[in-house]
């Protein structure tokens, strides 16, 4: 259930310009507000979009987090593929049912 707070952070960053500004200035400060595992914290800090996808973050939220880091669309799609290769199948959420998850 912890990936919930990863997604909550992303949701809040989308909606709250003040939080977004604070995030841009001091990422660690904002991340400390959320109940995150060490792995989640590391993935968010890097950011490791591929690992976040594998953890089960919904793409509709994840794409906005990637956009914060000015990640081009083609790269966003590529790093998810790489995430599957490096970290294994999606662990939770909708995409557990995906065909790409079975490869």
């Amino acid at each position: 259930m912890s990936v919930y707070y990863v997604q909550k952070l992303m949701y809040n960053l989308n909606r709250d310009p003040d939080l977004r500004e604070r995030f841009d200035k001091d990422r660690e400060d904002v991340l400390s507000l959320y109940k995150l595992t060490d792995e989640e914290l590391e993935a968010l800090t890097k950011p490791d979009i591929g690992l976040l996808y594998v953890m089960g973050v919904n793409g509709q939220i994840l794409m906005h987090y990637a956009a914060i880091f000015n990640m081009p669309w083609a790269e966003y799609l590529r790093v998810m593929e790489e995430g599957l290769e490096k970290h294994g199948p999606v662990r939770s959420g909708l995409y557990v049912m995906s065909e790409s998850n079975e490869k």
């Binding site: 996808y53 919904n58 793409g59 509709q60 799609l77 998810m80 790409s100």
Partner: peptide, 8 residues
């Protein structure tokens, strides 16, 4: 559609 995923 398969939005925002590797199958997009």
């Amino acid at each position: 559609h398969w939005p925002c995923t590797p199958e997009s």
